[in-house]
Design a protein around this nucleic acid. Structure first.
Lengths: 230, 230
DNA sequence: ATTATTATTGAATTTGGATTCAATATCAAT
DNA sequence: ATTGATATTGAATCCAAATTCAATAATAAT
């Protein structure tokens, strides 16, 4: 399971080859929505792509190289939308959270297989694990960094802030995993749109962060959560 | 990856055999703290146990059968402590949460490898996945069931309550995973004892649940979290 | 002490799948 | 039309690891 980083996956030299290579990648992505990373077989991918088994190794150095490339693409996409978010997030805190969760919900809805694969691949490939955790932690630190401004009277030290941020991030992680990967019946039964779910998650995060409900006026869908208080 | 449930793993008929079988199980548990379930090899287990490779199949029908047995043991242990919890939890809400998290923290601290393995094995073995999810969901429903009493004025329907409960459960999940499985440097640097971490998690859960801080008097360690408010 | 049962060994076999590669087809350039 | 480069095929090969099993050792029963 040696981490091959970008390595020497042979590149196609003609449009036709380019196409075949893409077809293999798409086939793998499609399959990941149906089976886990450890169930994935080279033969299944080539079958799904409609090419001979041997062609796979003409374009990829092995399953891990392909997976790594797929996940790397998505990691790059995340980082890109994160940039966008910074602009969006000039607004109030609740809007920032909501727009953040919109992106996260969309990612899970569009590619549940890839999101699941990230977790699985992290266990096996130390190099990818390092990159993914670094990316995730960096995003959390972004939030942790503004704590002193949001809570000028806070007594928490840096590490405690990190604990809080990690904890709150679990709210979205768990719901998205349960809803889109596990496809839990209860959460499916809610029938929430992606925007609605994003708002609920933002509201729940907000409560954990500020120990109070978000103001009613910012809520479009999840205002019933306001009734949850002592 | 056929789920063999308990199946026909041959039972030893003498104390000596019983011992060898246990040694194999312990060896596997020890290894799981070091490597992931998919890295686990029969040969490694027999080596760790100090027996010949062939003996493994004398006592187990394959790796999955052993893993299934190990996880089943722990699942049973969880369910048992849950019973105890109900007695402990006659107190106030915060104490209930804290004693719940004490058990969860202890489980992760004592057997990080097994906790990680649960997630991985769930992906591969549908039968175990069903049992684990059922067990997890049942515990969440226990909490959801008391919502009407805790929040008599709540407008949330049953599914929405489930969403909230799932979301809040993510707080502990993510922190425990990050602290004990990923061994995240920031969380390790906190140097919290198991009881202290349990209290922090309880406090964070409490904030998400009630949209307010827990009363100062119930906090022994995590009282600095009270300074997090607007 | 002999016999039957269970435990243990490790080399041989099987298995599931990745990987290679020689042969063939397609394409672009001249 | 010929040539050289790239693309594609699928059967043959390889490989790591699980699994089997005949042989041997330990133990219990008589």
């Amino acid at each position: 399971m040696m981490p091959l980083s970008d390595n020497t996956s042979p590149a196609p030299k003609r449009p036709k080859g380019e196409l075949a290579r893409e077809r293999l990648k798409s086939a793998a992505i499609a399959l990941l929505d149906r089976v886990g990373y450890h169930q994935l077989r080279v033969k299944d991918i080539t079958a799904e792509a409609g090419v001979a088994a041997g062609l796979f190794h003409h374009y990829y150095n092995g399953l891990d190289a392909l997976i790594d490339e797929i996940l790397e693409d998505h990691l790059a996409a995340f980082e890109a939308t994160e940039q966008i978010e910074r602009d969006v997030s000039k607004g109030d805190w609740f809007s920032r959270l909501r727009s953040h969760y919109r992106v996260a919900v969309q990612a899970h809805a569009a590619h549940p297989g890839i999101m699941r694969c990230i977790d699985q691949f992290c266990v096996d490939d130390p190099a990818f694990r390092a990159r993914w955790q670094a990316s995730y932690n960096r995003r959390l630190k972004l939030l942790a960094a503004v704590f002193p401004y949001v809570f000028p009277n806070s007594d928490l030290n840096e590490h405690e802030v990190n604990l809080v941020v990690h904890a709150l991030s679990g709210i979205g992680q768990e719901v998205l995993r349960t809803r889109y990967i596990e496809r839990n019946a209860d959460l499916l039964a809610l029938g929430l749109s992606e925007d609605e779910l994003a708002e609920w998650l933002a509201a729940l995060f907000y409560r954990g962060l500020f120990a109070c409900n978000p103001p009613r006026r910012v809520l479009n869908h999840a205002d019933r959560i306001l009734s949850l208080k002592r």
